[in-house]
Design a protein around this nucleic acid. Structure first.
Length: 869
RNA sequence: GCGGGCGUGGCGGAAUUGGCAGACGCACUGGAUUUAGGUUCCAGCGAUGUAAGUCGUGGGGGUUCAAAUCCCCCCGCCCGCACCA
């Protein structure tokens, strides 16, 4: 029995597609377009099978939409700036540009071997000046539009490496390489005013109806709108001199944001963020407070760390006057769980009705005053022990608020604050402006110049791009741009005095916030051609990992609006449809001494044990997302070498639903390989002689042959529907059902009749065409063997004949008292009365009815008869 | 801590969205072919029971003629949290 030679076949068809430039497209105004985009990869090295799952899905969509008649744009490029290139530069002494270029070459070759239908003429790499020059211009435009500005912000600082650390580089409060305790530092940085679009970004989410619900929810929560009030607490006690600032000009007052102004009468403390100006001012004369703040700053900047740390505070000695009762005073603390970035950087604590406040109050023995009474509770005896009461109830212990519900009390308290001039109702957002400065080399230089006389001066447009210098060294800790001997020294464009370039580079999310626009006209002199963007945008189907559900997608939505405001385009939402695919997982293996092992290092012995390289036992760990660090990766090259691209592609589409994680197994890929060969033999070694292409299927088919024809047309309908709805695993199952049905035919006695053979040809051609977007090389080969005209990649998608796609005979379930007692075969749409009497006559049914007439019969047409005895 | 998601045979999953639970596949078992292994073909494959049947979708409760699907409570696992991309 022969085997499919995928090596020869796959390279052959890839050459044909390439020579004919099948996937290079141009805008054709008037013709319907479809823009399919997979999130472009970071060129980190080599691809493993986990990387190509979303490209396989994107390619399926691209080929399918193309067959459905769309002008399909399906580009690919490289998100080429980033930290790993610098890490490699330090670890392997290779220049980031070279490391990146090598990785791009390797990964492009890998993608080409997979046979993906990309328009490679639009390939971009974001590290090229031809790409990043345009975002430097955009930044200058943002600056003019007031969408970019400079302010101080906190970073993780590694005092040994002299560098800023990403949160992921901070492990248990220490720098990942140096092991030094990480500090928080205030640095002057560039920000983009994403908050200028908060309401729009939030409001438009509801119109993104082709986005996954969970991503929309995550974006909503990220923006985090909360209604509440700002409240001023006047301070009493020794104020520092000069007194600290307070918003709205109330000198000496602490401005607090709360969503629970209804619980003000339960306040027992006010707490400031360690970075609050007042806390900073007080620390100048309080060494203990300064120490406490320093300690808080060692905690790192990540919200997860801050929120899970033990609640701690420092009593400042200051007191805050209750806004509703000048005779009540509460102590002012500095507390480690108050975030400067949210609200006003200060809170009031109501321990009875907030869990964090309660923990804090118990620790520092502060009063716990309940002011909201749960429904039905007795006000005389209601107390709080270890759990704060956060639900709705009736206000008590609260003067003029007594008897109100929480919602009513929020309104009443807000109105009273406004009347007293001690606060006002307001809306706070969790969303903060986007800090884009990075103290790194491998990124796009920020095009500004610092002049001692003129201050911050934008680089004139005629001087763009500001290119990265190539001769840099990572030998000295810190940013190579900052200690480059000459690069930063320039003349001020305004006064021509000696000045310095900004040495920070952009966050790499900057590049990925507009690359989808660049793809529309990738070689244009401008960032993009307006005509091209008007034709191709928005992206019809965007595909990528859920890990980008918030930041990348939100930044891109913001960027598109910012560009619109600056007159670049007329578009709000860049991605009309979004799909987030699951990860590819694999078992993990460890040796006895705990070292991770690659899957290819593990073998199964004859008695079924798993052993490592030295025949030592292997410990099988859990199945986890493929990652280099745990070595549970399966290299793409090895799989393509052994089984071919189509087998890998089909495996990545079968079994698991695309949005869920997929487990990669050896037995699984072998199963697909067997199926690939089965398909190939069905066409290359047909068991029955096929009639020539174009042979018409005669009318009046015998029932057995009609069954195969029905299966064929049902498969077209079902697969099309599944592909439309991203149910690729189901589409695979439907295709397998069709191939099973085809294989049953030759064994039948009627199989050699002309009618049967014509139906068989139709079935085989249909199978081939349905396989086209999934296994394009094999399908192209099958198409050729079947004598089909032209290239399969250029054929339109098959159309199901509704007459044949409909089931003629249905099986109806018969239940008695909710339990299945039998089934009924009858023609589709048989009248209810006939179905009922047939059901009642079933012997299994009469047995359970025991001679009594049924009390009730429910009939769902073509589906079920439910009899209540 | 906050937010999001998931849970169905030995395994991945399917179930027309409230209507025959387990489609399709992997693994496994028996048989045929083969010098052997692999391949291929046939049959079986949720648990329990000789059978009729009974039980069964993480656990418990509820709504309904009918629940994997809807409601309430609980358990477990995974992901994100602003300088990784």
């Amino acid at each position: 029995m022969s085997r499919y030679n995928f090596r020869e076949t796959e390279t052959k068809w890839q050459r044909v597609w390439r020579e004919r430039q099948l996937f290079a497209v141009a805008a054709e105004p008037g013709r319907p377009k479809y823009y399919v985009l997979e999130m472009f990869p970071y060129p980190s090295g080599k691809l493993h099978v986990g990387h190509v799952r979303n490209y396989t899905m994107g390619d399926l969509v691209a080929r399918y939409r193309r067959a459905r008649g769309f002008n399909v744009l399906h580009p690919m490029g490289w998100d080429a700036f980033g930290l790993p290139a610098e890490n490699a530069a330090i670890a392997e002494n290779v220049h980031p540009a070279i490391w990146t270029a090598q990785n791009i070459a390797t990964m492009r070759a890998q993608l080409e071997r997979m046979g993906f239908a990309y328009d490679w003429s639009r390939e971009i790499a974001t590290c090229h000046p031809e790409y990043y020059r345009h975002e430097q211009k955009m930044f200058l435009d943002f600056l003019v539009a007031g969408l970019a500005y400079r302010k101080e912000s906190w970073v993780n600082w590694d005092p040994v490496e002299n560098t800023v650390l990403a949160n992921e580089q901070v492990i248990d409060g220490r720098g990942w390489r140096s092991g030094a305790i990480v500090e928080r530092r205030l640095l002057s940085q560039w920000f983009l005013r994403i908050t200028a679009f908060t309401d729009e970004l939030l409001g438009a989410i509801s119109r993104l109806d082709r986005w996954p619900e969970r991503v929309r929810l995550m974006q909503e929560n990220w923006i985090g709108r909360s209604e509440g009030a700002r409240v001023f607490f006047d301070t009493a006690g020794p104020l520092p001199d000069p007194p600290p600032l307070a918003g709205e000009g109330r000198v000496g007052a602490i401005e607090v944001f709360t969503t629970r102004q209804d619980t003000l009468f339960g306040a027992s403390f006010v707490a400031l963020s360690p970075n609050h100006p007042l806390a900073q001012r007080l620390a100048e004369n309080d060494a203990g407070l300064a120490d406490f703040i320093a300690e808080c700053n060692r905690m790192g900047t990540s919200e997860a760390v801050i929120e899970t740390a033990e609640k701690r505070g420092y009593k400042t000695g200051l007191e805050a006057v209750h806004p509703f009762d000048p005779n009540r005073r509460v102590p002012v603390y500095v507390a480690n769980f108050v975030l400067m970035e949210y609200g006003t950087g200060a809170i009031f604590g109501c321990p009875a009705h907030d869990q964090r406040d309660l923990e804090f109050a118990r620790k520092y023995e502060l009063p716990v005053i309940p002011v909201v009474l749960p429904p039905g509770a007795d006000p005389a005896h209601f107390t709080i022990d270890e759990t704060a009461f956060v639900e709705d109830g009736t206000l008590f212990n609260s003067a003029f608020l007594d008897g109100l519900t929480v919602a009513e009390a929020k309104r009443a308290a807000g109105e009273r604050l406004e009347a007293l001039g001690r606060g006002e109702r307001t809306v706070a957002y969790r969303l903060r402006d986007w800090g884009v400065s990075r103290q790194r080399y491998w990124g796009c230089p920020i095009p500004v110049i610092h002049c001692p006389q003129c201050g911050i001066v934008p680089v004139p447009e005629s001087d763009l791009p500001v290119k990265l210098p190539e001769d840099i060294s990572f030998a000295v800790p810190g940013n190579p741009l900052a200690h480059h001997p000459t690069w930063k020294r320039v003349a001020c464009p305004l006064c021509h005095a000696p000045a310095e370039r900004e040495t920070d580079t952009f966050d790499t999310f900057f590049e990925s916030s507009w690359y989808f626009l660049r793809f529309c006209s990738a070689r244009d002199e401008r960032a993009f051609s307006r005509d091209a963007v008007d034709y191709w945008m928005p992206v019809d189907q965007y595909i990528g990992g859920v890990e980008h559900a918030v930041l990348h997608l939100l930044y891109s939505r913001f960027f598109t609006r910012a560009l619109k405001q600056c007159g670049y385009l007329d578009l709000d939402e860049p991605f009309a449809g979004l799909f987030t695919q699951g990860m590819v997982c694999h078992q993990t293996y460890r040796s006895e001494n705990g070292e991770w092992l690659f899957p290819e290092e593990v073998e199964r012995t004859d008695d079924g044990r798993l052993v490592g390289p030295d025949s030592r036992p292997v410990i099988v760990g859990r199945t986890e997302k493929m990652s280099k660090s745990k070595k549970n990766v399966v290299g793409l090259d090895a799989i393509v070498d052994t089984y071919g691209a189509d087998t890998a592609r089909f495996y990545l589409l079968s079994d698991s639903p695309p949005e869920r994680d997929l487990e990669w197994t050896e037995t699984g890929i072998e199963g697909i390989w067997r199926y690939v060969n089965r398909l190939w033999r069905m066409v290359s070694e047909p068991l029955l002689p096929l009639p020539p292409p174009g042979t018409a299927v005669p009318g009046g088919l015998p029932a057995e042959i009609a069954d195969l024809r029905r299966a064929t047309h049902r498969a077209i309908a079902a697969v099309s529907d599944d592909l439309d709805k991203f149910r690729f695993n189901r589409a695979v199952a439907r295709i397998r059902e069709l191939s099973n049905a085809i294989e049953e035919l030759p064994a039948q006695s009627f199989a050699a009749t002309p009618a049967a053979l014509a139906v068989l040809r139709e079935a085989l051609e249909t199978l081939t065409r349905l396989l086209g977007p999934m296994m394009p090389h094999l399908a192209e080969e099958m198409w050729q063997m079947l004598g089909g005209a032209g290239l399969l990649a250029e054929r339109p998608w098959p159309v199901a004949d509704p007459e044949w796609a409909r089931e003629e005979q249905v099986t109806i379930a018969v239940q008695v008292n909710g339990k299945l007692r039998g089934t009924l075969e009858c023609p589709r749409d048989t009248a209810s009365g006939a179905v009922e009497s047939a059901a009642l006559q079933l012997p299994q049914v009469s047995r359970w009815l025991d001679g009594r007439p049924p009390r009730k019969v429910i009939i769902v047409p073509n589906r079920i008869v439910s009899i209540v005895a």
